[in-house]
């Protein structure tokens, strides 16, 4: 298992069937994160090294509490690593931010209208009102919610809110999109629809994405590569390439026998970690 990690760690071109790129957009090396008082720390993340190529969709998959969110937050600069380095390589000649986060749920501001939520990143960057509304509108159309521009988040369903969240991140035009279980709170049907939607949007311009999930099928459907993590303290256990051709269809893929084989394979890798995580939670 350790070997797997070593092999996959920084070697982002290992996956077959993807164009070779020499440009790593996300580069994390030896990340370690401790929480708590000195002497009573818990290790949330251990020896986490990962490189994500430009235009790659990578998922972090692992049992809950294994440090997925922590890794993402370090990359987003919302948390500082105890040791190790995390870098996002910037495009040149742009004033857009290095990363934008899509949060799990309830991250839209209830007091801002849908369009103002989408334009929030632009407003923070000092873009004038009319311009930011003009720039936000196409992204609201992209997620199919143009009609709801002047509604408030409280008037939308959970699925619609996550679409707005997606649009808010996309308007920002970041180098990297960081998504923390954005569909976890949705019911099964809405989850499928949102996966389909994300595929459609993402396959258009292939932004670099690091997507956190604890659902195997979601990881397969969306990703070029899946990073399987161990139970706490979170380490990278194995990195798996997903060679399904694009454009993909979230529903049809699941009917493919290779899909079944792959998810069984991933489950075999994940199973003992889930059991360990459960034992940790019980103990």
């Amino acid at each position: 298992m350790r070997d797997d990690r070593q092999k996959g760690g920084l070697d982002f071109v290992a996956g077959k069937g993807r164009p070779l790129t020499d440009e790593a957009t996300i580069e994390a090396t030896g990340l370690r994160k401790l929480f708590g008082m000195p002497g009573h720390e818990t290790i949330a993340l251990e020896d986490f090294s990962l490189a994500v190529a430009k235009g790659e969709f990578v998922s972090l998959l692992g049992p809950s509490g294994c440090g997925k969110t922590t890794a993402l937050r370090i990359l987003a600069d919302l948390e500082t690593a105890s040791s190790g380095t995390a870098r996002i390589h910037r495009r040149k000649g742009t004033d857009s931010p290095s990363n934008s986060m899509v949060f799990q749920e309830h991250s839209l501001f209830p007091w801002l209208s849908v369009i103002d939520n989408v334009a929030y990143g632009l407003e923070m960057r000092g873009v004038a009102k009319q311009e930011r509304l003009d720039r936000a509108r196409p992204f609201l159309e992209m997620v199919g919610l143009a009609k709801f521009a002047n509604h408030y988040p409280g008037q939308l369903s959970g699925g619609m809110r996550q679409r707005v969240s997606l649009a808010r991140a996309y308007v920002n035009d970041p180098d990297v999109l960081l998504m923390d279980e954005p569909f976890a709170a949705l019911d099964a049907q809405n989850k499928l629809i949102m996966q389909q939607e994300l595929l459609r949007i993402w396959e258009k311009d292939r932004k670099t994405v690091l997507f956190v999930t604890h659902a195997i099928d979601e990881a397969i459907v969306l990703s070029d590569r899946i990073v399987v993590m161990t139970a706490a303290p979170g380490r990278i256990k194995r990195i798996i390439s997903v060679d399904f051709p694009r454009p993909r269809n979230a529903a049809e893929m699941r009917a493919d026998s290779r899909f079944g084989n792959l998810s069984l394979d991933i489950w075999r890798t994940l199973e003992e970690e889930v059991l360990t995580a459960r034992a940790q939670a019980d103990g």
Binding site: H106, F109, M124
Partner: peptide
């Protein structure tokens, strides 16, 4: 105020003044 909102503000690089007008006061 839900901590998640401050994360959003930080993640989107909210300037200090906007932290008041767009988050704290309306909240």
């Amino acid at each position: 105020i839900d901590k998640a909102y401050f994360d959003v503000a930080r993640s989107f690089r909210s300037p200090r003044r906007k932290l008041y007008t767009r988050l704290i006061i309306p909240a």
